[in-house]
Computed example of a mutant assay.
Amino acid sequence: MKTRQKDRDAPEPQAPWNEVRPRLWIGGHFWTGPDGTVQSAVVEAQFDLVISLFIRAGHGPTPGVEHLISEIPDNSLTAEQLHSVQRLAVIAAAAVRTDSP
């Protein structure tokens, strides 16, 4: 199972998600554990809001967690897809600002 293309110079993810700034996390569907095995990243109730640009069955979040979905390809985007990404970015920024300590 591949977590990212090998032609990229980025290392394999070493955690299911990483904090990029306080209260803003990024993650994928798979990560490489300490023993080198690929593991599923499954969101349960760790976060108040989950924004997905790609979904995979069984990866969460649990019912009751706000989950916004806008499937975005790794390719050129349409005007509608760009608008969706902009809308989700505004929502994410507002959530981080609102919940800041």
Rank of each mutant, 00 (worst) to 15 (best):
G36H: 06
V20T: 15
N18G: 06
T37V: 11
E44N: 09
A10R: 05
K6S: 14
G27N: 09
V42G: 10
P16K: 00
A15E: 13
G36W: 01
P11H: 02
W31T: 13
P34R: 08
E19C: 05
D7T: 07
Q5H: 11
Q14H: 05
D7F: 07
T3Y: 00
G33S: 15
F30W: 06
P34K: 08
Q39Y: 04
T32F: 03
D7I: 10
T3R: 07
A41N: 11
G33R: 06
A10H: 04
R21E: 13
V20G: 14
E19M: 10
T3D: 03
V38N: 10
T3P: 09
P11Q: 02
W25P: 15
P16Y: 00
H29W: 08
L24M: 11
Q14F: 00
I26D: 10
R23M: 14
Q5P: 07
P22T: 05
D7W: 07
F30L: 10
W25D: 07
E19A: 04
P16C: 11
W25M: 11
A45H: 09
R21M: 15
K2E: 10
L24K: 05
W17H: 12
V43H: 06
L24H: 05
W31Y: 15
V42L: 08
A10F: 06
F30C: 04
P22H: 02
R21A: 15
T3K: 00
D7Q: 04
W31D: 03
N18D: 08
P22E: 01
W17M: 04
R4I: 01
R4T: 03
V38R: 13
E19Y: 08
I26C: 13
D9C: 11
G27D: 09
G27M: 09
